[in-house]
Design a protein around this nucleic acid. Structure first.
Length: 334
DNA sequence: TACGTTACGGTTGAG
DNA sequence: AGCTCAACCGTAACG
């Protein structure tokens, strides 16, 4: 890690920013990166101002331009199994009807019969293994070898933040670096949905990606050229947002007494209402501040200052009952 | 100087 | 309960 310093609260990068190795930046910081980019600020200036490595800024902006989401991908877990009970049952059925059938023929049948698609069809070796190990142990199957299978269980992360949401807050807190609140409540914003649809089949991923594409969720004004195409300004962040920039406000973070602020209301991001009086406060490590704030927001559990269109629009998903998954998450944690 | 890319050491969570 | 492993993370460094 080179020059980074390891501390109880995380590590410090070359720019002086605090980060926790292996963990995503808080959503508030991610949001701010996109916000600043939309203001025409160059990635290099965003990197310096927010003290986030330019590689990270580049990655977050690229992802945002691609998907329309600022959210990190879902971490951990395993791929959904392709050899679902339904598939195994179908294989058994084929094998029972034609004991001499080859594994590759079974594979073709799975595709031809629509049991699987090209993205989730088991490999020939998997089918062979099923024939070897599983067939004969499927006594619970119905006559046609097909058991009830909830396709939604394919998603091993039905909700991106299931890990945090399903654990007690105490256990999460115990496992988490103090700077990183439970993931689902970074910056006080529920991020139960978003890019973090985990390990989806390519079809599902494509579908989700399309849903979240910038076309569905235009990140930029039609009149504003995409910053991905041209960075219109060489001004520094300070030039544009003003000296003594109050990053606490502009980032969607707000002081406890401040009114909610969304991107739509941030046409004048410079706000001195809560600007620290001491000069050294201006140099206060911004990321560290945000981490602490995120932590506080998580504890409070009801701060929505960062809830902007960047966070929510185009990403809202509902479960089968039409209820917001975000609300569902809150329901779990409430 | 700006920035896209990638090796690296790390975390996570379903199986 | 603990392990595995493949996903993800951000940083640092390279070009």
């Amino acid at each position: 890690m080179g020059d980074t310093q390891i501390s109880q609260y995380g590590e410090v990068n070359q720019l002086g920013g605090v980060f926790v190795n292996g963990r995503p930046l808080p959503n508030a910081v991610r949001l701010r990166i996109v916000e600043l980019a939309q203001l025409g600020i160059r990635p290099c200036d965003i990197s310096r101002q927010l003290r986030v490595s330019h590689g990270c800024v580049s990655k977050i902006l690229a992802r945002y331009h691609e998907t329309g989401s600022i959210l990190p991908g879902a971490i951990g877990g395993s791929k959904p199994r392709v050899t679902t009970p339904k598939v195994v049952g179908y294989i058994k059925d084929l094998k029972s009807k034609d004991p001499g059938i080859f594994a590759w023929e079974i594979r073709d049948r799975l595709l031809a019969d629509g049991v699987c698609d090209k993205y989730n069809v088991p490999s020939v070796s998997s089918i062979s293994r099923i024939l070897r190990n599983k067939i004969g142990t499927m006594a619970h199957l119905t006559g046609n070898g097909v058991v009830h299978y909830d396709k939604h269980n394919h998603h091993h992360h039905p909700i991106t933040t299931s890990g945090a949401a399903n654990q007690t807050s105490s256990s999460v807190t115990a496992l988490y670096n103090p700077l990183y609140p439970p993931y689902s409540t970074y910056g006080g914003v529920s991020v139960g949905v978003g890019v973090g649809i985990h390990h989806q089949s390519p079809i599902a991923a494509t579908s989700i990606g399309h849903h979240m594409s910038p076309r569905n969720n235009p990140p930029l004004s039609p009149n504003r050229p995409s910053p991905a195409i041209s960075w219109p300004s060489s001004h520094s962040v300070t030039d544009i947002l003003g000296v003594g920039l109050n990053i606490n406000v502009g980032l969607g973070f707000r002081p406890p007494q401040a009114p909610p602020m969304t991107i739509a209301t941030q046409s004048t991001p410079v706000c001195a209402s809560s600007e620290p009086s001491a000069s050294h406060n201006y140099n206060y490590n911004y990321n560290y501040y945000m981490y602490l704030q995120s932590c506080n927001s998580a504890a409070a559990g009801h701060q929505h200052g960062s809830s902007s269109s960047l966070m929510n629009s185009g990403h809202m998903m509902t479960n089968g009952s039409g209820q917001s998954i975000v609300n569902s998450v809150h329901g779990i944690t409430a």
